[in-house]
Computed example of a mutant assay.
Amino acid sequence: MKAFIFGIIISLSVLFLGCAGDRKIDEVISRFQDENVGDLRENVFDISFERVGGKTFILSGEIDDRTLKSALMDTLIANGFYIQDSVVVLPHNVSAPFGIIDLSVATMRSSASHTASMVSQALMGMPVRVLKEKGGWVYIQTPDRYLGWCERAAVQFTDSAGWKAWKKVPKVMVTSRCSVIRDKATGDVVGDLVAGCLIDATGRKNDKVFVATPAGTTGFVNASDIVPFDEVHFPDSADVQKLKKRALSLLRTPYLWGGISVRALDCSGFTKTVYRLQGIVLARDASLQARYGEEIPVDHGLEVFKTGDLLFFVPRKGSDRITHVGLYIGNSEFIHEAGKVKINSLDSTRLNYSRYRANTLVKARRINGCREAEGIVHLLKHPWYAEP
């Protein structure tokens, strides 16, 4: 009987020590993530562990930064753990590490399935990192660092040499709300375009600009629908009146969760689109956009705001979770996507005053004139579009 009881005690002790070890390694990994890994909408850090005995663990999962993985391993070892490494560094087992979006609008989803929720979109001419593949799907990262799955057919794959060569080809950006590529000989439509698409320019004749998509579809676009992708048309500082005009041109555009094309938008997709057409890349979601730019106080009166400032809102007063963004256009008004693109005022004397938005405004950021790595980047200086 004593031996039996002693065995139970030993078993319980091992179980207790094992549980304590599990909690400890979980705490170390969680603390490391909090201190070293950014937002998981922009960074891959999916780490799990399995104890195989004592303080020995199998570490598995995915991460997109080899240096960060090494730092994690060093941290765990420094905390007394013995690690068997099964963590995969992305990209992994991909056809090519880079790609260029070849559809006018490519849907990005939360998983590799048509039934998965849409998280964002990518436009033709957007360079992407290809991180992994699954069947007919690829896991990509767009220039704003956002992550999602899109159909393999939407991407023209390339290696680092091909990506470098692509950067050197003259390009045009579509500025008309919608356009098409037409066959040179017949004039038939051979491709679809929306504002913000970027395509190679191969020549011009009168009012026709000859173009090629990333996958090699050729034809012409009306010159009035595009502008050269250069510093003349996309200067370092955005023209706020053009910014306002572009925003107003999107009035009544319908809402779509994850939408960043002029056909349908979500709130942050709207502000991204307006700024993209002025040559500036913003972060994807409202809560991410709220991290960048010059912070403007929201309790010093409306006179502190300037056209082009981003206004950020929470779902209810007292909340600290930013879920909505709008673009200030002057005279107490802001334009935003909420069911449709519309204009509201923060002035209680105005007919379009929104008491709800006035009460839930918590932050404002000035984008124009600010240049911060990743959060606010000029397209022509973004390393994925231009040579360093």
Score class of each variant (00 low, 15 high):
T218C: 11
L361Y: 05
M1R: 13
A283F: 01
D85L: 14
I376R: 04
G279L: 01
R152H: 12
K168Q: 15
I10T: 12
R365Q: 14
P97Q: 00
I101Q: 10
P315F: 10
I29L: 12
P170F: 10
R371K: 11
T175Q: 09
L103P: 00
I226C: 01
R366N: 03
G148C: 01
G99E: 06
Q156I: 07
G318Y: 03
Y356M: 04
F4N: 04
H336D: 08
N222C: 10
I10W: 02
F49A: 05
D230L: 12
P297H: 10
V274N: 01
D34E: 13
K184G: 00
E333I: 00
E42C: 05
F98A: 00
F6K: 10
A223L: 03
Q141E: 14
V304H: 03
I101C: 14
V304K: 08
S345F: 07
V298F: 04
L351N: 04
I8P: 02
F81D: 01
G219I: 05
V314E: 14
V325I: 06
M108L: 15
E27P: 00
Y353H: 05
L248M: 13
V130Y: 01
P127L: 14
V298R: 05
F49H: 14
D159S: 08
R263K: 15
A122L: 12
A290N: 08
K168T: 11
L40A: 08
E35P: 02
K55W: 06
I260Y: 05
V174C: 04
I101H: 06
V169R: 13
V169S: 08
F49Q: 11
R355A: 11
T175C: 02
V130R: 03
A247I: 03
D64Q: 04
A373S: 09
R263L: 13
G318S: 04
F305Y: 15
R177I: 12
H378Y: 07
P170H: 09
T202N: 10
S120P: 13
K242R: 15
W163Q: 14
L103N: 13
E387P: 03
L346F: 00
R23Q: 13
T158R: 03
K272E: 05
L248W: 09
